[in-house]
Amino acid sequence: MDPSSGIQEPFDLIRLSLSERVFVKLRGDRELTGILHAYDGHMNLILSDVEETIMIVDVEGAPDGRGTVNVAKRKMEMLFVRGDGVILVSPPSRT
């Protein structure tokens, strides 16, 4: 399909990212970056050295704007991510 990158199916993108730092977008306005150690067909993930970013939108707070966005961050050493919460995984650029 795509000779330039050798990707035949979407999961190849994940396979090629093993041991690399990936960006993961999750339901509930959460984002993670971490080293990808394992994944399965559900997109359950094992990540290490993780930083989680949580967007907290305060709609009440602003007068008539779009609301203020507070960002909370925290770090975790090792993490299991349940696949059904995953929206997007982006590997490091291989360009």
Binding site: P10, F11, L13, F23, G83, V89, S90
Partner: peptide, 23 residues
């Protein structure tokens, strides 16, 4: 699997990814 991906929220580009896997 998408290449040269732009994320658009309400018509505004909010992110760019070289590659992206979308569940």
């Amino acid at each position: 699997a998408l290449e040269q991906t732009e994320e658009h929220v309400n018509g505004v580009v909010t992110n760019r990814y070289g590659d992206a896997f979308i569940r």
